[in-house]
Computed example of a mutant assay.
Amino acid sequence: MTAVVGGRLSWFKEIYAAPGSSETKAESGKFTGYAGLVHALNKDWSAYVSYADIFEPQAERDVGGHALDPVTGRNYELGLKGELLQGRLNTSFAMFRYDHSGRAVRDLAAGFACDGWYCSRASGKVRSQGGEAEVSGEVARGLQLFAGYAYTTTKYLSDPENEGQIFSTWAPKHMLRVWADYKLTGALRNVSVGGGVNTQSHTLGYGRTFNVPGFSTWSARLAYQVTPEVSLALNVNNVFDKRYYVPAYSTTASNNHYGDPRSAMLTLKYTPLR
């Protein structure tokens, strides 16, 4: 069993000046702590648990021109990490809970009162929680794999306007990323081929009145080791030229943007031998 403890002292000072007025926001010696335990279950697997305080200064201001107080909260994590195949393959599994209060959100009710744009207000208590799983390394001779899955939910626990609502409308509940790269053998031993997919579930429009569809994009790579010092690689992103909307502050009338179309990049790399 290994115990890890730590802390941070923070000082910050922010001066906001406008015609005819100014405001100073400051904090001196704010302490945020961290603590964790790691238990080696055997030579390959370890379990851990951790806790951390949250303190994030922010520059946004409210309709009265006052800077918002820093974001405060707590983060908890519980996980398992392991090495397989004599250390060639790394795996991790984690569950997390992140509670915070005071993060700046748009104050739509105030209109464009802050220099012709929306002001901000401090949110109530928000909880983000979920789990992650990841595996990476050499799963077979010449085959490198990365796969990661994340499940995330965000919710207002208390708020004068949005209690019970989803907090982060642009954060997908499910996200999966997979990439594999294989180095050929024999006469083609200098060639490697790769491919992968990024996929995510739907998100919400800014007003939480409609779904922004989820999407999957595929990528591919072909590489050739010309000499020990020179390599050539062709990467193609969004191979099938998928048309999709980027999660953002989408509304029924505006701010709906397509993601990047198919693109290709040819790279020549020279690495001198030591």
Rank of each mutant, 00 (worst) to 15 (best):
D115N: 15
T152P: 13
G164T: 09
A122E: 08
G164K: 06
G164S: 10
V135K: 04
A110M: 02
G142C: 05
V126T: 08
S158T: 06
G130E: 12
I166Y: 04
E138D: 12
G164H: 08
L145N: 07
S120G: 01
L157I: 09
G164Q: 11
V126L: 06
G148I: 01
C119A: 14
T154M: 01
Q165V: 07
A150L: 03
Y118E: 01
L145I: 12
I166L: 07
S123P: 04
F112P: 08
S128D: 09
G131H: 11
Q129P: 00
A140Q: 06
Q165K: 15
G130Q: 07
S136A: 15
G137Q: 08
S128L: 08
E138M: 12
E161W: 08
S120P: 04
A140E: 03
W117F: 13
N162T: 11
D115G: 14
V126P: 00
G131F: 13
V135F: 13
L143G: 04
K125E: 03
A150C: 02
G111W: 02
A133I: 11
D159A: 12
Y151Q: 09
E134V: 04
G116A: 04
E134N: 05
D159E: 09
E132C: 03
T152H: 13
V135W: 10
G148P: 01
A147N: 10
Y156F: 15
G130T: 11
N162R: 15
Q129N: 12
S158E: 08
I166N: 04
N162D: 09
C114F: 00
V126G: 03
R121T: 07
A140S: 05
S136I: 11
E163D: 00
G164R: 06
Q144P: 00
F146S: 12
T153R: 15
Y149D: 06
A122K: 02
R141P: 09
S120L: 00
F167S: 11
Q165W: 06
C119F: 00
Y151P: 03
G131N: 08
L157M: 10
Y118W: 09
F167Y: 15
Y118L: 07
R121F: 05
A140L: 14
A110E: 02
N162K: 14
I166Q: 14
I166A: 12
G131W: 14
A140D: 00
G148E: 08
E132I: 07
S128Y: 07
G111P: 01
T152D: 10
E138I: 11
G142M: 10
L143F: 05
A133K: 08
N162P: 04
A122M: 04
